[in-house]
Simulated assay, not measured.
Amino acid sequence: MTLSLTHVHGDRITVAHGAAGTELFSYVYRPEADWEAPKPYLHPVRTLSGGVVTDYRPNDHRWHKGLQLTASHLSGQNLWGGNTYVHGDGYLALPQKVGSMAHVSFERVEASGDRAVIAERLTWHPHGGELWAEEERRVEVRDVDPESGSWTLVWTSAVTNRRDEDLRFGSPTTHGRPAAGYTGLFWRGPRAFRDGRVFTAECAEPAGGDPMGSQAPWLAYVGEHDGRDGHATVVFEHAPSNDHLGEKGTHPAHWFVRSDPFAAVAPSWAFHEELVLPPGETLARSYRVVVADGAWDHARVAAHLEGLAW
């Protein structure tokens, strides 16, 4: 169950498992194209058997990169990338609104036994480059289980507002577009995962399509690979510590999820309403992502999560 870590300084950190050296993911932190809102991301992410469960720069959305933390509408800026949604006008190319998240330093980069940790400091910037926020991020691999064919990634981010006014986290939905509440932690699945099976802790068989905009402690996405036989299951779970006290409910977030025309999941910070972060205050969120070989059903996901500790 030994994990190993390779750091190409200025570029990426890759975590691998076992004697076979299966690369579970690469954490890429070098800056990329300005129009795509440069920020660190994980890609490729793989199952223990090597099946890829993320996509990178698909031709429909070049700024979709594996698993990454985003802010689609942030006090008038776009740290998501690409065109910006403007109510009444649709998506417009507004490069003056596209910001970035910048790597500052690593506080901890290590792998030992069945755990690996990447602890990083980042800064958030509007297009003009001012300092808007500082983030402390921790990406940890744990619970590697060859018997079940699964491993767990825990992503924790604490974002502190460094402006002298509120930071307002929103989404296209808070700005007028229905069913587009994406912001926060965002996963883009491979093209082969289109039309995959989606279910949540609250609903094993959602009626009428994806549970877009719903609330549940966890959500699972099952997709089938191209290029190799078999399926993979990716599960996203809120930490119990994630608080949300908005008008739309007390659960940490509402799910943004699509299986058509592409596979995507985000536990949105601001689906139906903006999240307001006052000056000097910190927004802290933790998520568990389970990456598993095979097509898991509701009972198996629930039992597996029950056996994991935060």
Results as ranks from 00 to 15, higher is better:
L3C: 09
S4L: 11
L5F: 10
V8W: 11
V8T: 11
G10L: 11
G10Y: 12
R12H: 14
R12E: 13
T14E: 15
V15F: 08
V15K: 12
A20W: 10
A20Q: 15
G21M: 10
T22F: 07
E23R: 15
R30M: 06
A37V: 00
V45P: 07
T47H: 04
S49T: 15
N59R: 09
R62A: 14
L69S: 08
G76L: 04
N78H: 15
L79K: 09
G82A: 04
H87A: 14
P95R: 08
A102S: 05
V104F: 06
G113V: 09
A119K: 08
H125G: 01
G128E: 15
L131N: 06
W132F: 02
V139N: 11
V139R: 08
E140V: 08
V141T: 01
R142N: 06
S150E: 14
T152M: 10
W155L: 14
N161K: 08
D164W: 05
D164K: 06
R168E: 13
T174F: 07
H175T: 00
G176Y: 00
R177H: 09
F186K: 03
R188A: 00
P190R: 03
F193G: 13
F193N: 10
R194A: 14
D195P: 04
F199S: 07
C203L: 09
E205P: 02
E205D: 10
P206D: 08
G208Y: 12
P211W: 04
M212A: 09
G213Y: 09
W218I: 00
W218D: 00
A220L: 01
D226K: 05
H231W: 13
A232C: 07
V235F: 00
F236E: 06
S241W: 10
P252I: 02
F256L: 12
R258A: 06
P261G: 12
A263Q: 01
A263R: 03
E281I: 00
L283P: 03
V289C: 13
G294R: 05
D297S: 13
A303E: 15
A303T: 13
L305Q: 10
L308P: 12
